[in-house]
Design a protein around this nucleic acid. Structure first.
Length: 570
RNA sequence: CGGGGUGUAGCGCAGUCUGGUAGCGCAUCUGCUUUGGGAGCAGAGGGUCGGGAGUUCGAAUCUCUCCACCCCGACCA
């Protein structure tokens, strides 16, 4: 490809709205253009990358036995009403009406549609198992779209749905997808990790997320360096502290802590460790007030909290509700005099003695508080906090580390949730009607492009993994308009490399060298060869890999052979 | 949904407080020079200052209103 016949629109400065490295670089390199909040055009250069990712995903899905189809992006409301998700899905779903005032949505996902297809066409166990997939544009009306295509509203996703006759079959399908995902991300050249994930509101038996590891990732992952344990922080269990609770050694005392509303402030004022303090979080669920206790240095895990019976749908209490229930403003609330209130203690709080908490009197806290003596033992003890670095690993092998990741894939064993709701049944060997066991498997295709950049860039620009680079090699002639020999050599090399099956980008703009170098580095073409009069006189060209510190000369005579070997994987 | 911020040329910004005929850098176009790391000089084009209403002799600037975009946020123990 000659640049003059392609479209490369790079810029030196990124629009002010971009924060993340990948977002800035995608805009600067001209991969994407923003049309509106969370809406992006894939420019020709970006589209080449997107298509490469897509191709690898498709190949591995096919290889794993999945069958491609394509469902409509716009879906009738009826299907969603049938599954109950028309109401449940909430404002994330973009709802639209047609000219007859009939309700539709722009599909945020396709469980309903695929279930509808399956129930119409799958009648016998002989047709199972089957796994359908598509690579489709989805729309989710995110509260806050950001980071470019990383969290866009319109995005490209590969979603697959498996149907099996039995739980064991579902496990097979699930395992096959898990393996395919590992292959896909390996082929993409990304550093990733599969982690156990919460099965959340969808229900179902097991679930794994695939994360591309990057400090800028939105998700926290807990993993154990000493074992293969890895879980989304939402799921990672915080074990109860080992050993017996220490006996009380101090008397309960009320101390003045005016203006000190946070555990940090109180601990600083009293000169005690933060781990000695207890914070009380006021929650309301089903119109009932609850006080949830966490150690001062811990943070609430809302997913875990919502698994407690009665707290399935909770919210934080308003200041008015707190005052009404405890007769005290937030900042000084605590469990001791809150006898009429349901108290839920985190495991680590239940194991504390001589702790400090709010006194339910504005400007006062209590010190030396002890369970059983100063207040009743907690009615309910649960794991409701996020694990922190150094917590013991739930599998008992060492301690946890925390890293950040970008969720690019998710495999999910759904079971019969949708087959029940949508009546997806088939006849088994005995002629009996049975519910299909379903699984669903997503990959954020467009997000992968951004994630790959997060993981592979430097101060000059993108450094694509070979597998998804928009071009394999850039040919840069210096003095293109001045030297016939340079021009001729450049075109010959371009043609030969192209004939050898490589995607070649020839910079025939007759630009100054600095401009061409800077553009190639920004765009991130993994290899480049420079042709100049100087070198040609000595019969050499210059080769440089994108990440390499400097160029090395190669002989003009054997240039093609040499470049072929450098370009071929491994 | 709440709070904050921004909207001026394709991009990055100044000008707004203190009203008086719209500016800088990059990019674009023309010419000459230059040619191995985002060139130099000379010239040129491009903006109903987010939209609407109002105040005023006069509004990018003041007032009201609407819109778009960005950031932060459930609180906190």
């Amino acid at each position: 490809m000659r640049i003059s016949q392609f479209f490369v629109a790079t810029s030196r400065e990124a629009p002010a709205e971009a924060e993340l490295a990948s977002h800035k670089l995608m805009l600067r390199a001209g991969l994407i253009k923003k049309l509106g909040a969370g809406l992006y055009t894939w420019m020709p250069l970006g589209l080449r990358v997107l298509r490469k990712v897509e191709a690898i995903v498709r190949e591995e899905m096919d290889r794993a036995g999945a069958i491609e189809l394509q469902m409509p992006a716009v879906q009738p409301a009826e299907l969603w009403q049938e599954s109950g998700r028309w109401e449940k899905f909430g404002p994330q779903m973009l709802r639209i009406k047609d000219r007859h005032e009939r309700d539709f949505c722009f599909g945020p996902t396709h469980e309903e549609v695929i279930s509808d297809i399956a129930r119409r066409d799958i009648k016998s166990y002989r047709q199972l198992p089957v796994n359908f997939y598509q690579i489709q544009t989805k729309f989710r009306d995110e509260i806050r779209p950001r980071f470019g295509v990383m969290r866009a509203r319109e995005f490209l996703m590969k979603d697959a749905y498996s149907f099996d006759a039995s739980k064991a079959g579902l496990q097979n399908s699930y395992d096959a997808m898990y393996a395919a995902y590992a292959k896909i991300f390996t082929r993409l050249g990304l550093r990733f990790r599969a982690v156990s994930a919460d099965t959340g509101a969808i229900g179902g038996s097991s679930s794994h997320e695939f994360h591309v590891l990057a400090d800028s990732g939105e998700d926290a992952i807990a993993f154990c360096p000493a074992s293969d344990y890895a879980a989304n922080i939402e799921l990672a269990e915080a074990l109860a502290p080992a050993g017996e609770r220490k006996p009380a050694s101090a008397a309960m005392q009320q101390v003045a802590t005016p203006g000190k509303k946070t555990c940090e402030d109180v601990a600083a004022l009293l000169q005690i460790p933060l781990t000695q303090t207890v914070k009380a979080i006021a929650l309301v669920a089903n119109d009932k007030f609850h006080l949830l206790l966490l150690r001062g240095d811990h943070s609430l895990n809302e997913v875990k909290a919502s698994k407690i019976a009665g707290l399935e749908v909770f919210r934080f209490a308003t200041e008015q509700e707190i005052v009404a229930a405890l007769d005290c403003e937030p900042g000084y609330i605590g469990p001791v005099t809150a006898r009429a209130v349901d108290v839920i203690a985190d495991r680590s709080v239940a194991a504390m003695s001589d702790f400090v908490c709010g006194a339910n009197q504005p400007g006062y806290h209590l010190t030396g508080v002890n369970w059983g003596r100063d207040l009743p033992e907690p009615k309910l003890i649960a794991d409701v906090r996020n694990v922190v670095e150094g917590d013991p690993s739930p599998d008992g092998k060492g301690s946890l580390s925390i890293c950040r990741g970008i969720e690019v894939g998710h495999v999910f064993a759904l079971g019969t949730k949708y087959s029940e709701a949508m009546n997806v049944v088939f006849l088994d060997e005995a002629g009996k009607s049975r519910l299909a066991e379903m699984g669903c498997y997503g990959i954020g295709v467009s997000r992968i492009v951004a994630a790959a950049i997060e993981q592979n860039h430097d101060d000059k620009g993108i450094n694509w993994p070979q597998a998804i680079a928009p071009f394999d090699i850039a040919v840069i002639p210096i003095g293109y308009g001045r030297s016939e020999e340079v021009k001729r050599t450049a075109h010959r090399l371009h043609d030969e490399l192209t004939a050898a099956g490589f995607a070649v980008l020839l910079d025939d703009r007759d630009e100054r060298p600095g401009v061409m170098f800077a553009d190639q580095e920004l765009i991130g073409v993994p290899h480049r060869v420079v042709i100049g009069e100087r070198g040609l006189k000595q019969g050499t060209l210059e080769y440089q890999a994108r990440g390499a510190a400097q160029a090395s000369p190669i002989g003009l005579q054997n240039a093609l052979t040499e470049l072929k070997s450098r370009l071929s994987p491994r």
